[in-house]
Design a protein around this nucleic acid. Structure first.
Lengths: 122, 122
DNA sequence: ACCAACCGCTTGGCATATCAAGCGTCGCAC
DNA sequence: GTGCGACGCTTGATATGCCAAGCGGTTGGT
Protein backbone atom coordinates (compact mmCIF):
# COMPACT_ATOMS: atom_id res chain seq x y z
CA UNK A 1 0.00 0.00 0.00
CA UNK A 2 2.78 2.40 -0.73
CA UNK A 3 1.33 5.81 -1.36
CA UNK A 4 4.40 7.28 -3.01
CA UNK A 5 4.97 4.74 -5.73
CA UNK A 6 1.66 5.20 -7.43
CA UNK A 7 1.81 8.94 -7.32
CA UNK A 8 0.71 9.76 -10.84
CA UNK A 9 3.37 12.38 -11.21
CA UNK A 10 6.13 9.98 -10.30
CA UNK A 11 4.83 7.34 -12.67
CA UNK A 12 4.54 9.77 -15.53
CA UNK A 13 7.95 11.25 -14.87
CA UNK A 14 9.62 7.86 -14.76
CA UNK A 15 8.01 6.87 -18.01
CA UNK A 16 9.15 10.04 -19.74
CA UNK A 17 12.65 9.65 -18.45
CA UNK A 18 12.83 6.08 -19.68
CA UNK A 19 11.58 7.06 -23.10
CA UNK A 20 14.04 9.90 -23.33
CA UNK A 21 16.97 7.73 -22.37
CA UNK A 22 15.93 5.03 -24.83
CA UNK A 23 16.01 7.67 -27.52
CA UNK A 24 19.49 8.65 -26.37
CA UNK A 25 18.55 12.22 -25.68
CA UNK A 26 19.93 14.51 -23.02
CA UNK A 27 17.65 16.80 -21.08
CA UNK A 28 18.93 19.76 -23.06
CA UNK A 29 18.36 18.03 -26.36
CA UNK A 30 14.82 17.15 -25.43
CA UNK A 31 14.43 20.70 -24.20
CA UNK A 32 15.41 21.99 -27.62
CA UNK A 33 12.98 19.64 -29.35
CA UNK A 34 10.10 20.56 -27.08
CA UNK A 35 10.65 24.25 -26.44
CA UNK A 36 10.43 23.40 -22.75
CA UNK A 37 13.27 24.40 -20.46
CA UNK A 38 15.61 21.64 -19.36
CA UNK A 39 15.27 22.34 -15.63
CA UNK A 40 11.55 21.97 -15.87
CA UNK A 41 11.88 18.73 -17.79
CA UNK A 42 14.17 17.51 -15.04
CA UNK A 43 11.57 18.35 -12.41
CA UNK A 44 8.79 16.72 -14.40
CA UNK A 45 10.80 13.54 -14.83
CA UNK A 46 11.36 13.38 -11.11
CA UNK A 47 7.70 13.84 -10.38
CA UNK A 48 7.96 17.28 -8.82
CA UNK A 49 5.47 18.87 -11.17
CA UNK A 50 2.40 17.97 -13.15
CA UNK A 51 2.95 19.43 -16.59
CA UNK A 52 0.27 21.20 -18.58
CA UNK A 53 -1.43 19.64 -21.57
CA UNK A 54 0.64 21.75 -23.94
CA UNK A 55 3.89 20.56 -22.44
CA UNK A 56 2.73 16.95 -22.36
CA UNK A 57 1.86 17.07 -26.01
CA UNK A 58 5.14 18.54 -27.12
CA UNK A 59 6.99 15.92 -25.09
CA UNK A 60 4.88 13.20 -26.68
CA UNK A 61 5.68 14.51 -30.13
CA UNK A 62 9.39 14.79 -29.48
CA UNK A 63 9.59 11.24 -28.13
CA UNK A 64 7.38 9.75 -30.82
CA UNK A 65 4.82 8.42 -28.38
CA UNK A 66 1.15 9.16 -28.71
CA UNK A 67 -0.25 11.82 -26.42
CA UNK A 68 -2.87 9.31 -25.35
CA UNK A 69 -0.18 7.01 -24.08
CA UNK A 70 1.29 9.79 -21.99
CA UNK A 71 -2.09 10.66 -20.52
CA UNK A 72 -2.58 7.04 -19.66
CA UNK A 73 0.80 6.88 -17.97
CA UNK A 74 -0.14 9.97 -16.07
CA UNK A 75 -2.97 7.92 -14.60
CA UNK A 76 -5.29 10.61 -15.80
CA UNK A 77 -7.02 8.57 -18.44
CA UNK A 78 -8.24 5.16 -17.46
CA UNK A 79 -6.59 2.19 -19.03
CA UNK A 80 -9.58 1.81 -21.40
CA UNK A 81 -8.94 -1.94 -21.48
CA UNK A 82 -6.74 -2.01 -24.53
CA UNK A 83 -5.73 -5.67 -24.70
CA UNK A 84 -3.21 -5.18 -27.46
CA UNK A 85 -3.10 -3.63 -30.83
CA UNK A 86 -2.61 -6.60 -33.09
CA UNK A 87 -1.60 -4.67 -36.17
CA UNK A 88 2.13 -5.19 -35.79
CA UNK A 89 1.79 -8.83 -34.84
CA UNK A 90 -0.58 -9.45 -37.72
CA UNK A 91 1.71 -7.73 -40.17
CA UNK A 92 4.66 -9.83 -39.11
CA UNK A 93 2.66 -13.04 -39.16
CA UNK A 94 1.39 -12.47 -42.67
CA UNK A 95 4.66 -11.26 -44.12
CA UNK A 96 5.51 -13.64 -46.95
CA UNK A 97 9.03 -12.38 -47.18
CA UNK A 98 9.92 -14.02 -43.88
CA UNK A 99 10.42 -17.65 -43.09
CA UNK A 100 8.36 -19.16 -40.33
CA UNK A 101 11.38 -19.26 -38.04
CA UNK A 102 12.10 -15.60 -38.68
CA UNK A 103 8.51 -14.73 -37.96
CA UNK A 104 8.67 -16.46 -34.62
CA UNK A 105 11.91 -14.69 -33.79
CA UNK A 106 10.59 -11.27 -34.69
CA UNK A 107 7.39 -11.80 -32.76
CA UNK A 108 9.35 -12.90 -29.76
CA UNK A 109 11.50 -9.79 -29.81
CA UNK A 110 8.47 -7.59 -30.37
CA UNK A 111 6.56 -9.06 -27.44
CA UNK A 112 9.52 -8.74 -25.13
CA UNK A 113 9.79 -5.06 -26.01
CA UNK A 114 6.15 -4.38 -25.34
CA UNK A 115 6.18 -6.29 -22.11
CA UNK A 116 9.26 -4.46 -20.91
CA UNK A 117 7.60 -1.14 -21.59
CA UNK A 118 4.48 -2.13 -19.74
CA UNK A 119 6.50 -3.22 -16.76
CA UNK A 120 8.22 0.15 -16.82
CA UNK A 121 5.19 1.85 -15.35
CA UNK A 122 5.67 0.37 -11.89
CA UNK B 1 -7.84 35.67 -40.55
CA UNK B 2 -9.55 36.20 -37.28
CA UNK B 3 -7.19 35.23 -34.52
CA UNK B 4 -9.77 35.01 -31.75
CA UNK B 5 -12.12 32.43 -33.17
CA UNK B 6 -9.64 29.61 -33.41
CA UNK B 7 -8.08 30.31 -30.06
CA UNK B 8 -7.91 26.79 -28.66
CA UNK B 9 -9.08 27.92 -25.27
CA UNK B 10 -12.16 29.56 -26.68
CA UNK B 11 -13.00 26.52 -28.77
CA UNK B 12 -12.57 24.17 -25.85
CA UNK B 13 -14.56 26.39 -23.53
CA UNK B 14 -17.42 26.72 -25.96
CA UNK B 15 -17.54 22.98 -26.43
CA UNK B 16 -17.65 22.36 -22.70
CA UNK B 17 -20.34 24.94 -22.19
CA UNK B 18 -22.47 23.39 -24.91
CA UNK B 19 -22.07 19.93 -23.45
CA UNK B 20 -22.94 21.16 -20.00
CA UNK B 21 -26.08 22.91 -21.19
CA UNK B 22 -27.13 19.87 -23.18
CA UNK B 23 -26.89 17.90 -19.97
CA UNK B 24 -29.04 20.53 -18.25
CA UNK B 25 -26.46 21.24 -15.63
CA UNK B 26 -25.76 24.54 -13.92
CA UNK B 27 -22.22 25.66 -13.28
CA UNK B 28 -22.65 24.86 -9.62
CA UNK B 29 -23.95 21.40 -10.34
CA UNK B 30 -21.06 20.65 -12.64
CA UNK B 31 -18.79 22.10 -10.03
CA UNK B 32 -20.12 19.62 -7.50
CA UNK B 33 -19.65 16.73 -9.90
CA UNK B 34 -16.13 17.70 -10.80
CA UNK B 35 -14.75 19.03 -7.53
CA UNK B 36 -13.78 22.13 -9.46
CA UNK B 37 -14.97 25.52 -8.27
CA UNK B 38 -17.81 27.05 -10.22
CA UNK B 39 -16.08 30.38 -10.87
CA UNK B 40 -13.19 28.57 -12.42
CA UNK B 41 -15.48 26.51 -14.62
CA UNK B 42 -17.06 29.75 -15.72
CA UNK B 43 -13.70 31.16 -16.71
CA UNK B 44 -12.70 27.99 -18.51
CA UNK B 45 -15.92 27.97 -20.50
CA UNK B 46 -15.30 31.54 -21.59
CA UNK B 47 -11.79 30.71 -22.70
CA UNK B 48 -10.00 32.72 -20.03
CA UNK B 49 -7.96 29.80 -18.80
CA UNK B 50 -6.39 26.62 -20.07
CA UNK B 51 -7.30 23.96 -17.54
CA UNK B 52 -4.90 21.29 -16.31
CA UNK B 53 -5.12 17.69 -17.37
CA UNK B 54 -6.69 16.72 -14.06
CA UNK B 55 -9.47 19.26 -14.45
CA UNK B 56 -10.04 18.34 -18.07
CA UNK B 57 -10.43 14.71 -17.17
CA UNK B 58 -12.88 15.29 -14.36
CA UNK B 59 -14.95 17.50 -16.63
CA UNK B 60 -14.89 14.83 -19.31
CA UNK B 61 -16.07 12.24 -16.81
CA UNK B 62 -18.84 14.41 -15.44
CA UNK B 63 -20.15 15.20 -18.90
CA UNK B 64 -19.83 11.65 -20.21
CA UNK B 65 -17.46 12.74 -22.91
CA UNK B 66 -14.30 10.85 -23.68
CA UNK B 67 -11.19 12.58 -22.50
CA UNK B 68 -9.75 12.13 -25.96
CA UNK B 69 -12.53 14.20 -27.44
CA UNK B 70 -11.83 17.01 -25.04
CA UNK B 71 -8.13 16.95 -25.80
CA UNK B 72 -8.93 17.07 -29.49
CA UNK B 73 -11.23 20.01 -28.93
CA UNK B 74 -8.49 21.67 -27.01
CA UNK B 75 -6.53 21.58 -30.25
CA UNK B 76 -3.82 19.81 -28.39
CA UNK B 77 -4.12 16.40 -29.97
CA UNK B 78 -4.27 16.19 -33.72
CA UNK B 79 -6.97 14.18 -35.36
CA UNK B 80 -4.88 11.02 -35.68
CA UNK B 81 -4.34 10.39 -39.38
CA UNK B 82 -4.13 6.63 -39.69
CA UNK B 83 -1.57 5.31 -42.19
CA UNK B 84 -3.31 1.99 -42.88
CA UNK B 85 -0.33 0.76 -44.84
CA UNK B 86 -0.37 -2.99 -44.31
CA UNK B 87 3.30 -3.62 -44.72
CA UNK B 88 5.32 -4.86 -41.80
CA UNK B 89 7.65 -1.87 -41.82
CA UNK B 90 4.78 0.55 -41.58
CA UNK B 91 3.19 -1.40 -38.77
CA UNK B 92 6.37 -1.35 -36.76
CA UNK B 93 7.00 2.29 -37.46
CA UNK B 94 3.57 3.35 -36.29
CA UNK B 95 3.45 1.08 -33.24
CA UNK B 96 3.02 3.35 -30.27
CA UNK B 97 3.87 0.66 -27.84
CA UNK B 98 7.48 0.67 -28.93
CA UNK B 99 10.09 3.27 -28.20
CA UNK B 100 11.95 4.87 -31.03
CA UNK B 101 15.07 2.88 -30.24
CA UNK B 102 13.09 -0.34 -30.17
CA UNK B 103 11.51 0.49 -33.49
CA UNK B 104 14.89 1.03 -35.04
CA UNK B 105 16.13 -2.25 -33.63
CA UNK B 106 13.13 -4.21 -34.85
CA UNK B 107 13.31 -2.66 -38.30
CA UNK B 108 16.97 -3.45 -38.49
CA UNK B 109 16.39 -7.09 -37.66
CA UNK B 110 13.48 -7.29 -40.06
CA UNK B 111 15.46 -5.84 -42.94
CA UNK B 112 18.38 -8.14 -42.30
CA UNK B 113 16.02 -11.11 -42.50
CA UNK B 114 14.48 -9.97 -45.74
CA UNK B 115 17.82 -9.21 -47.30
CA UNK B 116 19.20 -12.59 -46.31
CA UNK B 117 16.23 -14.32 -47.88
CA UNK B 118 16.55 -12.36 -51.12
CA UNK B 119 20.18 -13.27 -51.40
CA UNK B 120 19.35 -16.92 -50.94
CA UNK B 121 16.82 -17.00 -53.73
CA UNK B 122 19.34 -16.53 -56.48
C1' DA C 1 47.24 20.75 -15.15
C1' DC C 2 43.86 23.03 -17.44
C1' DC C 3 39.87 24.30 -19.88
C1' DA C 4 35.96 23.69 -22.71
C1' DA C 5 31.82 21.38 -23.33
C1' DC C 6 28.52 18.59 -21.76
C1' DC C 7 25.72 16.52 -18.08
C1' DG C 8 21.72 16.77 -14.47
C1' DC C 9 20.18 19.68 -10.83
C1' DT C 10 18.88 23.93 -7.57
C1' DT C 11 17.04 28.34 -6.99
C1' DG C 12 14.43 32.67 -7.26
C1' DG C 13 11.03 34.90 -9.67
C1' DC C 14 7.27 35.77 -12.98
C1' DA C 15 3.04 33.79 -15.18
C1' DT C 16 -0.79 31.05 -14.90
C1' DA C 17 -4.24 27.90 -12.62
C1' DT C 18 -7.45 27.45 -8.97
C1' DC C 19 -10.32 28.70 -4.99
C1' DA C 20 -13.27 31.20 -1.23
C1' DA C 21 -16.07 34.93 -0.71
C1' DG C 22 -19.07 38.12 -2.38
C1' DC C 23 -21.86 40.79 -6.07
C1' DG C 24 -25.98 41.75 -9.10
C1' DT C 25 -29.82 39.55 -11.52
C1' DC C 26 -33.75 36.74 -12.32
C1' DG C 27 -37.80 33.90 -11.34
C1' DC C 28 -41.12 32.48 -8.08
C1' DA C 29 -43.76 31.87 -3.83
C1' DC C 30 -46.12 34.27 -0.29
C1' DG D 1 -43.68 44.13 -3.11
C1' DT D 2 -40.47 41.47 -0.67
C1' DG D 3 -37.88 37.71 0.51
C1' DC D 4 -35.47 33.58 -1.15
C1' DG D 5 -32.94 30.57 -3.77
C1' DA D 6 -30.43 29.65 -7.89
C1' DC D 7 -28.12 31.53 -11.65
C1' DG D 8 -23.49 33.31 -13.88
C1' DC D 9 -19.82 36.32 -12.88
C1' DT D 10 -15.89 39.40 -10.53
C1' DT D 11 -12.32 39.74 -7.43
C1' DG D 12 -8.46 39.25 -4.47
C1' DA D 13 -5.41 35.58 -2.48
C1' DT D 14 -2.85 31.23 -2.78
C1' DA D 15 -0.77 27.33 -5.21
C1' DT D 16 1.39 25.58 -9.09
C1' DG D 17 3.66 25.74 -13.79
C1' DC D 18 7.49 27.29 -16.09
C1' DC D 19 11.93 29.72 -17.13
C1' DA D 20 16.77 32.29 -16.92
C1' DA D 21 20.76 32.00 -14.54
C1' DG D 22 24.01 29.56 -12.24
C1' DC D 23 26.16 25.46 -9.60
C1' DG D 24 29.14 21.26 -9.11
C1' DG D 25 30.50 16.96 -11.51
C1' DT D 26 32.41 14.36 -15.54
C1' DT D 27 34.71 13.63 -19.84
C1' DG D 28 38.02 14.52 -23.24
C1' DG D 29 41.35 17.27 -25.71
C1' DT D 30 45.99 20.11 -25.48
Amino acid sequence: MQTADDDPRRVLGGFIRTQRQMANLSLRQLSALTEVSNPYLSQVERGLHEPSVRVLKSIADALNVSAETLFERAGLVEATGKPADPTTEAAIRSDERLTQAQRRALLSVYRSYVEANVREES
